[in-house]
Every structure is written in C-alpha cells, then in structure tokens.
C-alpha cells in the first residue's frame, strides 16, 4: 500500500511524487549531458572580467545578506517602520503588550459570559 496523506478534500502521495521527481531528474540529466561541452573550469572562462581588469577580492564581490531583497524591503518601508518601532527590546514593553492583549481577551470572553 502506497503511503497517502488524506486531507478530506483529496490526497497526496509522497512516494509517487518522489518517483516522478526521480524520473524528471533523469530526463533533465540526459538533456544536460547532451549540452555544449566547451566550458573549461581551469581557463579564463571562470574569471569575472575578460577585459583584463584586475579581479577585486572575494570579500568585495560577495553578495551580502543585507543586499538581498533590498527592493522588497524598500517597497515595504512604511510597514517595516511600524514593525521595527514596536520591537523595542525593552522588557517593560513586553509586559505592557501582554497586559494589553490579556485585557482584550478578557473583554472578549467576559463580554460573552
């Protein structure tokens, strides 16, 4: 019996998915192996600049974590401004939030009692 994850709306078979994944990986490998073999690892092909410019140090050409998703964060600047403002790191604020949320929950529950 093949392993199935039944959800009530349908099912998911991980082993069947895996079988297809292996099949498509094999097809992909066959296509890859028939590609152009002229790429050479130990040649000038791997250098970042073919113009003759000096190669900068690895540290300088590295893409840093802060650079990734820069546009996304810039687009949501206002959202992050609010979010970062409430993450104060002050333990008194942590307790205030707890008291605030606790009060709202109490109002919701006692209001329905």
């Amino acid at each position: 019996m093949i392993s199935k994850l039944v959800t009530g709306s349908g099912y998911w078979s991980p082993l069947l998915w895996l079988a297809f994944l292996i099949l498509f990986t094999l097809i992909g490998y066959v296509i890859y192996s028939r590609g152009n073999p002229s790429y050479k690892k130990e040649s000038e092909q791997v250098k970042p600049y073919l113009s003759g410019n000096a190669e900068p140090s690895k540290e300088k050409i590295q893409v840093r974590a802060s650079d990734i998703y820069w546009g996304f964060i810039e687009a949501l600047k206002e959202y992050y401004k609010v979010l970062q403002a409430i993450h104060t790191g002050d333990v008194r604020d942590y307790i205030l939030w707890y008291l605030g949320v606790g009060t709202v929950i109490l109002f919701l529950l006692v209001g329905g009692a």
């Binding site: 707890y98 949320v101 606790g102 929950i105 109490l106 919701l108 529950l109 006692v110 009692a113």
Partner: peptide, 18 residues
C-alpha cells in the same frame, strides 16, 4: 459560564499564549 471562570480562562489563555 460565570464571570469568574471567564476571567480565569482569559488569564490562562493570555499567559500561555505569551
């Protein structure tokens, strides 16, 4: 459904949620 029970429920809920 008494008020006291609901207060206890609210306190437990908020505390464990935190």
């Amino acid at each position: 459904l008494s008020t006291l029970d609901m207060i206890a429920f609210g306190l437990l809920f908020a505390s464990f949620a935190m």
